[in-house]
Design a protein around this nucleic acid. Structure first.
Lengths: 215, 215
DNA sequence: CCGTCGGTGGCACTTGGTGTCAACATGAGT
DNA sequence: ACTCATGTTGACACCAAGTGCCACCGACGG
């Protein structure tokens, strides 16, 4: 997010070396973890193996990730923030279905481009979807996204999220579409285009999203 | 499900004492667990405490429940099977929105009646919704329900669940409504009527459930 | 009365995860 | 150059969840 703020009287970039080191360790850890997990499966890999491969102590691992699952799920965590921001940025008059479509499309677009990052994202998604422990944590995150989308949507429409079912229903339904697309994309080994899939999904659910809210 | 099968030449009911003992231990365990968890919160209670209160060994606990979370979530697990069965039992010609409404209403109806069981169900739901670890496991279960509902719905409509988004979208959307109702019911301390809430929720999402599937 | 079998407890063990502390690097001020 | 504050790390001890193993016991059938 921040773009190398510069301290006022030195020429060094103020992405303070310490921060770059932190990023380095984090990358090294995720790298080692993803590589091992992809090969041996989630349950067959211990944290000790991961930290051994990354060359840090177990204690350090848990300073970077809250749990063994997190090192995988974190990879997709940006999606949540991205969706909320995208929704907040949509024009106020836009129909809910269109606004939510754009909000959900953002993160999926990152999967669409066939880059290195996208290739790994596919592996990560497949790993998550077939590993119960990872799926559980992922759904937990997604529940948070749902809360955020619900709040944003309620604010957008001037509704109280506690006295109207609509915002929660709409947010949940949009995420259901997101899930369905992810599932299908993963199942087709990335062959199908997420952008096109999400379009088809929203064609189905749009009537519900744009239904007039209960009075 | 089974209704006391009787062995052919004895007068004793063949719910073999052993089975009744098993049920007894299971009940004792859930009883002790729920009581402790409700008071001290999920994280502050160890399984050692639970088994001490129930008078069995820790080893036995894990013969009955796969995890500490399970002893709570199991409580709502019947809902999943109930929904699938209910959906399968609906007449073939019924519109998806109506069939899914009935499927989802079954388990919620159990909460509606203000009995002892319902009172405890409310506590359990509230505990789950405010405890991340429990929520994660609950969502994991719900993901299984979604798979089952998806399969049942696809079968019902003669669609291939892997080449059509609709079944998964419809199942997920119905469960979203279920979640929204559960959330609201829990938030109102059981004051609001689940049956009425689920009706309102389905009024919103029905247009999507009954939309004509992609060709 | 005896053998089988399912359920149980006890115990050792692995693994995820945390608290604490001492060691060390960095960076700023003097 | 000295020093102090801050932040990161590794080592160690520790707790709780969960599993494998085995010996034991009570119920049931012959």
């Amino acid at each position: 997010m921040y773009d190398r703020p510069v301290s006022s009287h030195t020429s060094r970039p103020a992405v303070s070396l310490a921060q770059r080191k932190r990023q380095l360790v984090s990358d090294e850890l995720t790298e080692a973890a993803l590589q091992l997990l992809a090969v041996k499966g989630f349950d067959a890999v211990t944290v000790d193996e991961i930290v051994a491969a990354a060359g840090v102590s177990k204690r350090t691992f848990f300073r970077y990730f809250a749990s063994k699952e997190d090192v995988v799920v974190q990879f997709l965590a940006d999606m949540g923030a991205g969706m909320r921001a995208e929704l907040a940025a949509r024009p106020a008059g836009e129909r809910p279905s269109a606004a939510l479509l754009h909000a959900v499309s953002g993160p999926l677009a990152a999967c669409a481009d066939h880059s290195d990052h996208a290739e790994r994202a596919l592996r990560v998604v497949q790993l998550i979807l077939r590993t119960p422990a990872l799926l559980a944590r992922f759904l937990e995150r997604q529940a948070q996204w749902r809360e955020e989308l619900t709040a944003e949507l309620a604010h957008r429409l001037g509704l109280d999220p506690d006295s109207h079912l609509y915002p929660r229903l709409a947010a949940g339904t949009a995420l259901t579409a997101f899930d369905a697309v992810l599932h299908r994309w993963s199942g087709s080994d990335g062959a199908e285009d997420p952008a096109e899939l999400v379009g088809r999904a929203f064609a189905v659910i749009a009537p519900a999203l744009d239904a007039v809210p209960e009075q």
